[in-house]
């Protein structure tokens, strides 16, 4: 699992998640997202097209980051979910509390 964060010209940060977000990877992922939110971008988008797996421990990281974003008035969205990851978001109800967009372009448009 790794996550790289890039800042777009529009003031939106994009965190690209790669690999497996299991229990062992969740703490580092959460820290990276919290750091990205603390930098006060206009919005943070989690780009998930290379994210193969997420468990409840991984969802916790999404939840903590989304909450911090909301508290800090930073926009927040996830995009590009693979079918398995999408299923976890839907079964958990997370797709109702986190803005899920089809791809990065859609996410940037929604947060503009």
């Amino acid at each position: 699992m790794n996550v790289s964060i890039e800042n777009t010209e529009g003031g939106v940060s994009v965190a690209s998640a790669h690999g497996r977000l299991d229990f062992g990877a969740s703490a580092e992922f959460q820290k990276a997202l919290e750091g990205a939110v603390a930098a006060k971008p206009k919005a943070l988008v989690i780009e998930c097209s290379a994210l193969e797996y997420v468990s409840s421990a991984g969802l916790r990281a999404f939840l903590v980051a989304a909450r911090a974003a909301k508290a800090g008035n930073v926009g927040f969205a996830a995009c590009g979910l693979q079918p398995a990851v999408k299923e976890v978001f839907e079964v958990s109800g997370f797709s109702k509390i986190i803005d899920v967009q089809a791809d990065l372009a859609a996410a940037l448009a929604a947060l503009a």
């Binding site: 468990s55 909450r67 109800g93 986190i98």
Partner: peptide, 22 residues
Amino acid sequence: DTSTPIEDRRVGGLGVYFVREM
């Protein structure tokens, strides 16, 4: 409760819920 708003949402119990649902 998977319909709880984001501020009050807990992740505890979600693991076993996944076991049941999947």
